[in-house]
C-alpha cells in the first residue's frame, strides 16, 4: 500500500505541474530565458551568471534557491526553471510509462490468449514472432525503430503520427515489450485449456468468444494485473533511457530522461539538474515495483505466507 500511496503522490504532483508553473512560479518551463533575472535576498540576480573563474567565459545557471515560489531547484543552461520542468517532465514520463504499459498489456492479452487458446497455425506464427522480438535486444530494437520513425513520423494509411508526438515512444516501447507479457500468458492459457471447466464449457457448446471472455480471461486476469505496475516501471525506465539517448521525447517537450540529458553538461557545476529527475525515476519505479509485489501477494496468498515483501 505504501507503494500505491507514493505512486499516487508522484502522479498528483506531476498533474499539478501547470498550476505550479502558472500560479506559483510564474514561469514558462519550455521557453528559454537566457536574459532572465530573479530577485534573490533583495538583490536582482541573473539566471545565467557569467563565470568568474578561469577566462571568465561562458555562463553557469543559478543553483537551487530552495524557495518554492521561484527557481526552487535553480535553472538549466537555457535559464528554464528546473523544478517546473521536473513536474512537466514527470507528466510525459508517467504518461508514456502508463500508456505504453496499457497498450502493451492489451495487445499481449489479445495475442497471448489467441495463441494459447486456438493453438495450431495461429499459435505457431505468433510464437515465432514472439521468439524473434524476444531474441532482439530491447534497446537495439527500440533504437532502430526510434531513429527511423523520429526523423519522419509514422504514416499508416490515413493515420499520421508526427515526428515529435509522444505517441511514437509510447507505441515503440509498447511494441518491444509485448512478448514479455504475451509469452507467460500463452503458457497460462495453454494450461487452463486442459482444465475440466474449460472442457465442460466447450462440451456445452459455448462459443469461442464466450469461453475466452467468460472463462479464460477472468482466470488470466491476475497475471495481467500483476504485470501492469511492473510494466509501467519498466517502460518508464526504457523511456528515460531512450530520451537520454535523445531518441525518446523530443524537445521542446521534456521528460525525466531528457532533463537528465540536459543536466549532463552541468553535472559538475549544477549536479541537481541531473540528480533530481533521476531520483524521481527511482522513487516512482521503487513504488511501482513494491505495488507489483503487493498485487502478486494479493492474488497468490501462498507467496505472502512465504514471507516475501
Amino acid at each position: 500500500m505504501a507503494g500505491l500511496a507514493v505512486f499516487l503522490l508522484v502522479v498528483t504532483i506531476c498533474l499539478l505541474a501547470p498550476v505550479y508553473a502558472h500560479d506559483i512560479a510564474h514561469v514558462n518551463p519550455f521557453a528559454s530565458n537566457l536574459q532572465g533575472t530573479i530577485v534573490l535576498h533583495g538583490k536582482v540576480v541573473q539566471l545565467l551568471q557569467q563565470n568568474t573563474q578561469g577566462l571568465g567565459l561562458g555562463v553557469t545557471p543559478i543553483g537551487p534557491t530552495w524557495n518554492i515560489s521561484h527557481y526552487f531547484l535553480g535553472a538549466d543552461n537555457q535559464g528554464r526553471d528546473v523544478f517546473a520542468r521536473l513536474l512537466y517532465g514527470g507528466r510525459s514520463s508517467l504518461l508514456i510509462g502508463a500508456a505504453s504499459a496499457l497498450i502493451c498489456c492489451l495487445a499481449a492479452t489479445i495475442l497471448g490468449l489467441a495463441a494459447g487458446y486456438f493453438g495450431g497455425p495461429i499459435d505457431w506464427v505468433l510464437s515465432r514472432i514472439f521468439d524473434i522480438i524476444w531474441a532482439f535486444p530491447i534497446y537495439l530494437l527500440a533504437i532502430s525503430l526510434s531513429v527511423v520513425l523520429l526523423t519522419s513520423g509514422l504514416q499508416i494509411g490515413f493515420i499520421h503520427i508526427g515526428p515529435g508526438s509522444l505517441m511514437l515512444p509510447i507505441l515503440i516501447i509498447a511494441a518491444v515489450f509485448v512478448p514479455y507479457v504475451a509469452r507467460p500468458l500463452r503458457g497460462i492459457v495453454l494450461s487452463l485449456r486442459e482444465r475440466e471447466f474449460i472442457q465442460a464449457a466447450i462440451g456445452s457448446g459455448a462459443s469461442d468468444y464466450r469461453i475466452l471472455m467468460k472463462e479464460i480471461l477472468p482466470n488470466a486476469a491476475p497475471t495481467i494485473i500483476v504485470f501492469l505496475p511492473l510494466m509501467v516501471a519498466f517502460n518508464m525506465l526504457t523511456e528515460s533511457a531512450l530520451s537520454f539517448l535523445s531518441i525518446g521525447v523530443q524537445p521542446p517537450a521534456a521528460s525525466w530522461g531528457t532533463i537528465i540529458n540536459d543536466g549532463l553538461g552541468l553535472l559538475y557545476t549544477r549536479p541537481v539538474v541531473a540528480i533530481a529527475p533521476g531520483l524521481m525515476i527511482v522513487v516512482t519505479a521503487v513504488a511501482l515495483n513494491i505495488l507489483g509485489d503487493g498485487a502478486r501477494d494479493a492474488f497468490d496468498p501462498k507467496a505472502k505466507l512465504r514471507g516475501s515483501i
Binding site: 533511457a241 537520454f244 533521476g278 525515476i281 509485489d293
Partner: peptide, 14 residues
Amino acid sequence: IAAISVPAYWLGEV
C-alpha cells in the same frame, strides 16, 4: 528493488 529501479546511466553519472 532499488537496484532494479535505478536507471543505469543515471547511476553512472552519480
